[in-house]
Amino acid sequence: MKDHGQAHNSPMSSKPKENNPKENPKECLVGSGKPLDPEAIKSILLKRFGSVIEETQVINKELVIWVSAANLLEVGRFLKDSELAFDHPRCLCGVDQGEHLEVVYHLCSISRNHKITVKVKLPRHMPKVPSLYPVYKGADWHEREAAEMFGIIFEGHPDPRHLLLLDDFQGYPLRKDFSWSAPE
């Protein structure tokens, strides 16, 4: 490629805004809190909840915790309101793990810029989990989507209708055992 040199030499190649020095990523955040590393988050959570956190793991520098459905709301409230300040629900999705279903909550903190993944294992025959809508309003549509796609029941969701699928759609399309043939 010849244009590399030309772009530099051409008189039009005015310099990008010099008055804008490289910003520190943390400067552009709302809060002043420092991000915590996964181990620190883990120790705070284990100190507060102990055995309620069923399992922990660090994947891609991100803490993943497993909690039971019964304790989810409590953990969610703590994550949002405590000094961890996970105020931003990034994503919520259902996963069909074969013998059980799973709901995966990706949370992050805008003020402290750290992330966490919360997973809840649900039995296939009775996938019931409390809705996180009271804590995170953003969970609303995500939960409705997971409900219609996986048949997960989000207890306490204010509007548990189908979101993307038809109102009278039968079956749960994203489950692995979903049958493609039209219902009889």
Partner: peptide
């Protein structure tokens, strides 16, 4: 409300939150 709803992008920034993943991560 914007943060609680998980809103991102220009809409979040319009509320005064300078959150841009290009800078943050």
């Amino acid at each position: 409300l914007a943060i609680n709803l998980g809103i991102t992008g220009p809409i979040l920034r319009s509320t005064g939150v300078a959150y841009d993943i290009r800078k943050v991560e």
